[in-house]
Design a protein around this nucleic acid. Structure first.
Lengths: 143, 143
DNA sequence: GTTTTTGCAAACAGTTTGCACTATC
DNA sequence: GATAGTGCAAACTGTTTGCAAAAAC
């Protein structure tokens, strides 16, 4: 996996730095769809001198290499996903957690939309909003 | 329509001001899904002393009254829609225009997702990205 | 040794807030 | 006349940029 990123960076003329590898690995190792700041905080113990600007600059490159996708779940900040397959996401409106919705085939819905519009559709993002299992339990106890 | 907004505002204890009516009317009269700044610019000729802060504060209230919905199409700024029915949107990646995708029934897709996840789904947003008819023509000429 | 990257700080854009003045009720 | 809203400017947050020192090649 590391080798792959290294090669991809080199091929496009980018230099390979520990920061870049760490940021990509942090993203690839989590399912939590972190924001730039979350990545920064996660890496802080291991790269105490790394700056937030480096996280942003690296994400920019990773986008270019198609190694991450950007999520815009309606919060203040963007979130990033190293899984670049196009899958729907859910956000818990209670705790803010963002999760993947795997195993849902949306191809028929997409082709239905494509057929219905004059736009040449190139991509899409599906965001669902609700309450996660953990928060459902909590509110059940309270009410 | 005005009467309706007036009543809704009063019922919730908000005062009825020309600015609030103008902002709602501007939103209700367009299909262009304007940002706060666009609304501000549109109204500038008629309300030259109105400030951007008033636009934001008013939108906040209109959200509370369920008179507008917020779109997060992946740009720098939010966009607003006075059509609060839940319909998909397309953004042209060439000119930035945002349009409604009317007449698409997504209820089966939504119920398929609801059945598939542990989340209690309360809402969703579907964003499509592509090239609008006008931009398709332009790029065809160029290439 | 050249060229790119880092990390800092300053800049920036969109949005929010505090507060005196004004308008609504 | 009491209460809430406006408009200004300043604050704030997430993100971007410029640049000298440092690292990659």
């Amino acid at each position: 996996m590391d080798i792959c990123v290294t090669t991809l960076l080199r091929d496009k003329g980018f230099k390979v730095t520990p920061q870049r590898l760490a940021i990509y690995n942090a993203l690839a190792a989590t399912k939590s769809h972190p924001s730039a700041e979350m990545i920064y905080n996660d890496l802080q113990p291991y790269y105490p001198t790394m700056s937030l600007a480096t996280v942003y600059k690296t994400i920019e490159i990773l986008k270019e290499l198609d190694l991450v996708q950007v999520l815009n779940v309606g919060e203040d900040s963007f979130r990033y996903d190293a899984d670049t397959t196009n899958h729907p996401h859910v956000r818990c409106m209670c705790c803010g957690r963002v999760e993947d919705l795997q195993g849902i085939d949306s191809s028929d819905f997409i082709s239905r939309v494509s057929a219905h519009t004059d736009y040449a559709i190139q991509g899409q993002q599906f965001y669902f909003y609700g309450t996660c299992p953990a928060c459902q339990k909590t509110s059940a106890v309270v009410s």
